[in-house]
C-alpha cells in the first residue's frame, strides 16, 4: 500500500506509516501530560470542615471497634472522636497536633497509620527493600541473557531424539 521508496530515502527517513505512528504517540503523550498536569495544578474547592474531620478520622481507629476507622463507625466512641477532631480543627490545630492528642489520650494503637520512626518504620521500609530487590533480580534476569549451561539428556530423552532424527532422515530430511 505504501508508495515505493528507493533504498536511499528508506535509510534516512522513517516510512510514512512509522512517522504517522510516532506522531500519534507524541500527540497522545502531550495530551496525557497536559491533562495530568492540569489535574495536579487545578485549584480545588477548599475542603469543608466535615471533609477535614473525616480525612483525619479515617486515620484513627474507632476506640471501641475492632477494625473500623473513626470515620466509618457509627458507635458513640467514634462519634466522640469525630467531635474531638472537629473541636480541635475549629480551634486551629492541625492534623499532627490532633493525632498527637489522640495518641496521648488512647495510646499509640489508636493511629491506623504506623509511624515512620522506631520499630514501626520497618513496616514501611521492608516492602520497599523487598520491591527493590525483586526489581533488581528481574533486571538481572532480563538484561543478562546468557543461556544457562546445557542440560544433559538422559538415556530415554536421547533415544527419543534419535528416533525423531531417524524419522526426519527417512522423510528425506524435510
Amino acid at each position: 500500500m505504501s508508495p515505493p521508496v528507493d533504498s536511499e530515502s528508506r535509510s534516512i527517513l522513517p516510512q510514512p506509516r512509522t512517522l504517522r505512528l510516532g506522531l500519534l504517540w507524541i500527540a497522545m503523550a502531550l495530551a496525557l501530560g497536559g491533562a495530568l498536569g492540569y489535574d495536579a495544578l487545578a485549584s480545588r474547592p477548599p475542603n469543608s470542615i466535615n471533609q477535614r474531620v473525616l480525612a483525619i478520622a479515617s486515620e484513627v481507629r474507632c476506640p471501641s471497634c475492632l477494625d473500623e476507622t473513626a470515620a466509618q463507625s457509627t458507635t458513640q466512641t467514634a462519634i466522640a472522636v469525630r467531635a474531638t477532631i472537629r473541636q480541635r480543627l475549629l480551634a486551629g490545630q492541625d492534623q499532627e497536633q490532633i493525632e498527637a492528642y489522640l495518641e496521648s489520650r488512647y495510646g499509640p494503637a489508636i493511629l491506623l497509620r504506623p509511624q515512620a520512626t522506631g520499630v514501626s518504620a520497618l513496616v514501611w521500609v521492608l516492602p520497599v527493600v523487598a520491591a527493590l530487590a525483586a526489581i533488581a533480580a528481574l533486571a538481572a534476569v532480563l538484561f543478562n541473557r546468557r543461556a544457562g549451561p546445557a542440560v544433559p539428556l538422559n538415556s530415554e530423552e536421547r533415544e527419543l531424539l534419535e528416533k525423531a532424527r531417524r524419522r526426519w532422515r527417512e522423510h528425506g530430511g524435510q
Binding site: 499509640p108 493511629l111 491506623l112 497509620r113 509511624q115 520499630v119 513496616v123 521492608l126 516492602p127 523487598a130
Partner: peptide, 29 residues
C-alpha cells in the same frame, strides 16, 4: 510485592507486640 505488603501489615502488630512489648496498629491508611 503486593502479597508481601499484605502479609507484613497483617502480622506486624503481632511481631511488634511480641518482641517489643508495644502496641501498634497497621490499618487501612
Amino acid at each position: 510485592t503486593f502479597a508481601f505488603v499484605v502479609l507484613l501489615g497483617t502480622v506486624f502488630p503481632l511481631v511488634v507486640e511480641d518482641l517489643n512489648h508495644s502496641t501498634v496498629s497497621v490499618g487501612a491508611p
